[in-house]
Design a protein around this nucleic acid. Structure first.
Lengths: 128, 128
DNA sequence: CAGTATCCTCACGGATACTG
DNA sequence: CAGTATCCGTGAGGATACTG
């Protein structure tokens, strides 16, 4: 979806491609938000849309399709009227939360250092 | 840089923004590649360009500036001729490798499941 | 060698409208 | 409700040329 699946300079082993695909997923803002929202409980399409907030219908659909394709989310359609579709994290999806949370913890832990580095860099490049 | 710094729907706490910024970094293909290449030893600009492979001069510069701004990489200029500029991971940069490697391990470990899910999804959506 | 400057493309993603 | 279809603007990023 968001990863160059095809012909990289050939030094890219299939392992690297798999890793890049996952890194791409994690780098995708919507995917991570959706996964975190689905961590607690299963949600319907519009519930998800409301909970995530700020996502367009289009991107919600596309992102969910991608997550479903990667086996991270299941999509269950109830043949009622009006239609009811529930999205739920798979075991694989749940297992992804651990390394992602580790990354989030790193971010929070080192946020002060990063912010400080930013300020330093910015004031230095200001007196160009 | 690659994160919506400004006005999200306001439900986005500053913590979330910090996490998103880091996730964005990790999702950036070039940043991760550069960090991993700098993990072993310091490298010069063109060494880095060669080692990474497939990156344009422009993106290498931009990515390095971003990494430097976040305090993940140091840029050392030697006033020689021809100029010599060395890039090195900071302690912060090194510490980022741990959670990133955890993610990479997850990717490798679950690659078969993901590939299987992909095949299943694709063949199902084929008989549309 | 280590960049900066410029141009140009195209695909990511938002907005809107329509449907089973 | 849960989508699909379409149009469209923006900007990320490659290619190329130039410079201290």
């Amino acid at each position: 979806m968001d990863v160059t699946e095809a012909d990289l300079p050939a030094h890219d082993s299939s392992d690297c491609k798999a890793v890049n695909a996952v890194l791409g997923r994690v780098g995708d803002k919507w995917s991570v938000l959706i996964i975190s929202r689905l961590g607690d409980r299963t949600l319907r399409f519009n519930e998800l849309k409301r909970e995530v907030g700020g996502i367009s219908q289009r991107m919600l659909t596309l992102t969910l399709r991608g997550l479903e394709r990667d086996g991270l989310v299941t999509r269950t359609v109830f043949a009622t009227v009006p239609p009811r579709v529930e999205y739920e994290l798979t075991a694989l999806g749940h297992s992804l939360r651990e390394p992602v949370d580790a990354l989030a913890r790193w971010a929070l832990e080192h946020q002060p250092e990063i912010a400080a580095a930013n300020r330093l860099y910015d004031q230095r490049s200001q007196r160009s």
